[in-house]
């Protein structure tokens, strides 16, 4: 199967029902997306599938044939981070960090759909991404910073 991940097209020989998260981590060695719960319930594995946030633990390889996937490792670069990544650095959002790649990918998807969300809209959009360190106030602050940096 062919799959484009972070701008690179791969020709892969994997089981059709392999979860996308396994494919990314075990086959392509992209370890940014994290395994949390395995049942859509935490958001740690969030990536973009054709531009929209999805939980990669629940999508199978056969469902992403020919698709474009973006992970935290392809969202920006160290020299040119995505505005959400830069805001995360500026606000020092992460504590343990395990959920943060999913948080960033969800926030980037939110701002792509809604460039100027209210605080209530931010909270609603981010509520499916859990953080055991409770970094939620900093997550919201970073999203607000990213909005301002984009001039929205």
């Amino acid at each position: 199967m062919k799959l484009t991940v972070d701008g690179t097209t791969h020709d892969l020989d994997v089981e059709p029902d392999m979860p996308l998260l396994w494919l990314l981590r075990d086959e392509l060695r992209i370890h940014g997306p994290k395994y949390g719960c395995g049942i859509d319930a935490c958001g740690a594995c969030t990536v973009h599938l054709d531009g929209l946030a999805v939980r990669s633990c629940q999508i199978t390889a056969q469902e992403v044939e020919g698709a474009e996937v973006t992970t935290i490792e392809g969202l920006g670069t160290p020299d040119a981070p995505h505005p959400v990544q830069q805001a995360w650095i500026d606000e020092q959002v992460a504590q343990c960090g395990y959920c943060q790649s999913g948080q960033v990918m969800q926030a980037a998807s939110l701002l792509a759909l809604n460039p100027a969300p209210t605080d209530a809209e931010i909270d609603a959009a981010m509520s499916g991404n859990l953080c055991r360190c409770a970094s939620y106030p900093r997550i919201r602050a970073a999203i607000r910073r990213a909005i301002q940096s984009e001039g929205a």
């Binding site: 395995g38 999805v54 629940q58």
Partner: peptide, 22 residues
């Protein structure tokens, strides 16, 4: 959920395979 978090972020066009999944 388009205004906040689209249902399709977790709910696909088929059931999850594990109990508790979307």
């Amino acid at each position: 959920g388009i205004e906040t978090l689209p249902c399709s972020t977790c709910h696909t066009n088929r059931n999850g395979v594990l109990e508790g999944s979307a």
